[in-house]
Design a protein around this nucleic acid. Sequence first.
DNA 1: TATACTTTTGACCATCCGGTTAAACCAACT
DNA 2: AGTTGGTTTAACCGGATGGTCAAAAGTATA
Lengths: 203, 203
Amino acid sequence: MTGLDTNTEDIILKAARKVFTHKGFDGARMQEIADEAGINKALLHYYFRSKDKLFEAIFVEVLNTVFPKIIAVLMSPVSLFEKIEKVSFNYIEMLKKNPDLAIFVFHEISRNPIRLVGNFKNAGADFNIIKIQIEEEVKAGNMYPIKAEHLIANLISMCVFPFIARPVFMGMAGMDNDAYDQFLEERKQIIPQTIITAIKTRK
Amino acid sequence: MTGLDTNTEDIILKAARKVFTHKGFDGARMQEIADEAGINKALLHYYFRSKDKLFEAIFVEVLNTVFPKIIAVLMSPVSLFEKIEKVSFNYIEMLKKNPDLAIFVFHEISRNPIRLVGNFKNAGADFNIIKIQIEEEVKAGNMYPIKAEHLIANLISMCVFPFIARPVFMGMAGMDNDAYDQFLEERKQIIPQTIITAIKTRK
DNA sequence: TATACTTTTGACCATCCGGTTAAACCAACT
DNA sequence: AGTTGGTTTAACCGGATGGTCAAAAGTATA
């Protein structure tokens, strides 16, 4: 593919990402990563000193895949309703391309919550921007009040959780893989529709 | 506490449940379970032949904690709106008492999706009941159409995901533990409010 | 070609971990 | 007290696993 694929360090990262995101830190084996990369196990330690170091490298990479783009949308200077639509679209689009990331990220964060703190706080997330924007929309009569925490929680939950619970939902609703992909595609519309309709309406 | 606590088998199950749900199958150590139970490691193998067997025992137990009650509510003969309220309340209440279960269940299911199939299908879940109920509510003019899959996905997502993403949401919104517990409590109202308002309104 | 360097490898090591075993412990019964 | 049967333990085993090392292979430079 690209030139990156001929660079040993990147081959390793790619293999490690695949194995770690699929099996988690505890379930991943250095030997399996080496096999996946088509190299000797010792070479892993030559480029990355330890399993922890290698994991850290790909975990940061994954966090940067998952959070920054959505935060950028939420912080961008567009209307609240447009943000809700864009986040739904972008998040579902990204997770369709990286279906393992959701479970991986939250499992690993639960294994070691401290790791998170610094990393995404300085991705430019400022929660007050959303709070102020909601206040303004309420003042302008475009929506009814809701705490920013709940609005964002509703939005992210509905986007991400179907990827985490995929086998469960598929089993419950009797969907096959194709049907579920179609279902996920529909959610790009359903989620903003649900949220926006709810906040535009007197409860 | 109860008489159960003096029974070795139950002491083991309790310890195993704590360690497994906290660390996952791969991260759990038989020695740690033994320590937690205050017994010898060999005794684990005396009561449960292997780590797999012990895990299977507590996994079934956990599935029966997580799914049946919610399925029972969804299948019960009450109005759709009442179901939505009851599921929100019950799910959040249960997860407040067992905060580790959400991540644990979905991580382990992703590790081995087949395990799930039989288990909760015969918990009495019949998705058609919800589909029919929605059709009737639509026909009666009480709500606008929405696929049952999306309605249920929205409901479960908004209830469960805040437990999975707890550290992330806490970080983003700058909440401490007490504030987050309060936030979760509020969601018992917010979630049915959001869903019901949305489906009662022309989009 | 000789030299110096980085990259890659196979073989190896120490430790961890799930699992086994034989013996000790203990309660019940005779 | 002695026997029996279930329970608990300390010690041990073998394989898996993260990690190391010295030598081989490859590459660039003179």
